[in-house]
Design a protein around this nucleic acid. Structure first.
Lengths: 330, 330
DNA sequence: CGGTGTTATAAAACCGGTTTCATACGTTTG
DNA sequence: CAAACGTATGAAACCGGTTTTATAACACCG
């Protein structure tokens, strides 16, 4: 940057004032300064298009006026919607929102995904291993609220979602139609309450669990993994899908194979994203309370920013099961 | 924050060193220090979990190590995909990505959407009015690359997309089937090359243009606006849709009305998002070169960060028209 | 007319780092 | 043995703001 930005010292020099005075005039309408001086300062600031260096200000005040929202992957429609919903909260409150992605951070050194630079953090979905520990290390504590699946229920604030209960209901619903080969479609390594609930219900019903693991989370990943699985093992009679994107991908695979939904294979997704309204066969799903979750997360975060040592705030929200044609409900 | 973060002064004091020395030892492996001293510093830093204050470092070095990506609305699937694609570029380069949303910023004071706090900025889609001017004001210049539709072709870097040419082709394609009532489905106030091309082609064909304006960009907005329009004016024979989300919403409205695609109404979307592969009737669309666009944007931005005064870099990418069943191609 | 307030501004400390320059000491070297 | 050099570190300036404290000038008051 060859041309240097105009800073507060430039203003002060040009005006023959001290930079402290300029700062106070610019920021504090109550400060006792001569009206004429005030006018001169404002005029020059406007003329030079002076804007204070946000970094320097943040250093001086200890506040950035921004909140970071960490999420895994925007290609999953649900995630994008959550981010958008959270932005709505934040914007109304006059803060800036930075959306950040964990990315491939799993193996990378921490600096790659360091949670700095915000007055507060909200995460959605499970952060990479060790992330929260780092974010909450004694050496640099930032107000933090976890949302979505909670894997790490230490002394932190979180807005959880009861995947366990609703997942049980979903799987039981699939079993109720008399189907025996009820599979779980989920990314490998994803060991959350959805998987847990599925395994438990299957065990209780004395059925062999059938976990179809996908190599990635994108729809094309899911399609590929599922197609391979069916080629090798035949198709299950029902599938509980880790999220709606997976269910949508699955419905496409089934259609391509000439299988009917729900006659040949029943399907239940998870997330309740808008997209599923556009499928040929309406998709049963678990609808998550996105707006409520975001509103609560922001409320918790504000509290934590004001009172760093307040007792932990936690709540578990109940998703609702929306049964439609894809699971045999007419 | 009652418990203060441990900072470099704490380290220096505890070690009996000056903070300058500590800084150099921590950052510069080449610096000439006694191995024993080095070991002590590293050990204490690890023990106290010292992590340098990113803000202070940014102030001192003039670099944040991060790039901001500005976009309008993540609820539009295409936008979310672009953001994700750009993250891939940035992450590979070792930078942090901050995704930021213009939000309702149109009417708000600038500080709400000030483009500070990054070493560089990439925008996608048309920024709010006055945004680029502010970002590029002489007083605080930040490397900036515009992508997507370019409304503001001043002396800036941009990676454009030739919406005009491909939109002409799309509309002409719709006309070629003999349909006369060919409408444009677009958000109100969106006056870009898609609209321009549509209006021109219609004028050249001596047909009355029929612009169906939606009140918002979300699928539900589009559905409502379109349903009202059709109720009032009957349905057009073909629609060129501003983006795929709109086309998906439209296909749903048409289906609900018992209209067949493409027999009753032909449809062409725009963006080429994955979702359209999951529709009953495969959707014709304009496929945008997302990855190429992101890669170029990052290349341009790197260049601009290194050479602030390099000549402007610009390119216009060609999207491709993907014709499928929804526009009558079998 | 000296003490007491106000008012308008300057000066300096601070935020937490980085970076440049100076210095003290020990070791070669001429 | 003094000059020159290398090594290990301290000291201070700087980044660009904010905030607290000091000071100068002036008006008011008894």
């Amino acid at each position: 940057m060859l041309k240097k930005n105009v800073n507060i010292n430039d203003l002060a020099t040009r005006l023959g004032l001290s930079k402290g005075s300029v700062s106070r005039i610019l920021n504090d309408p109550q400060a006792p300064f001569a009206p004429e001086t005030r006018r001169r300062v404002m005029a020059l600031a406007a003329e030079l298009e002076y804007r204070p260096n946000a970094i320097a200000r943040a250093l001086a005040t200890g506040q950035t006026g921004s909140v970071a929202f960490w999420i895994r992957d925007l290609a999953v429609a649900y995630n994008a919607h959550v981010a958008q919903a959270f932005e709505t909260q934040i914007e109304a409150a006059g803060y800036h929102l930075f959306i950040r992605l964990y990315g491939g951070g799993e193996g990378k050194p921490f600096p790659q995904m360091t949670p700095e630079n915000a007055d507060g953090i909200v995460t959605h979905g499970a952060p990479p291993h060790g992330w929260t520990a780092m974010a909450q290390s004694d050496s640099r504590r930032v107000p933090l609220v976890l949302t979505g699946a909670i894997l790490d229920p230490e002394a932190l604030d979180w807005v959880g979602v009861d995947f366990y209960g609703v997942s049980r209901t979903a799987v039981e619903h699939l079993l109720a139609s008399g189907r025996r080969r009820v599979a779980l479609l989920t990314p490998s390594h994803q060991c959350d309450d959805r998987r847990l609930a599925y395994l438990e219900v299957m065990a209780e019903a004395d059925l062999a669990p059938e976990v179809i693991e996908t190599d990635g989370e994108s729809r094309s990943d899911v399609r590929r993994s599922l197609a391979e699985y069916i080629a090798a093992h035949g198709h299950p009679e029902a599938m509980f899908c880790h999220n709606d994107d997976a269910a949508i991908a699955a419905s496409r695979v089934l259609r391509d194979l000439g299988l009917r939904i729900p006659d040949d294979v029943a399907l239940i997704g998870c997330d309740g994203i808008e997209d599923i309204e556009y499928l040929t066969t309406p998709l049963s799903t678990i609808v998550l309370p996105i707006d409520e979750m975001c509103a609560l997360a922001w409320r918790y975060l504000k509290r934590r920013m004001q009172e760093p040592d307040a007792p932990p705030q936690r709540i578990t929200l109940q998703p609702t099961l929306a049964l439609r044609a894809s699971s045999g409900v007419s």
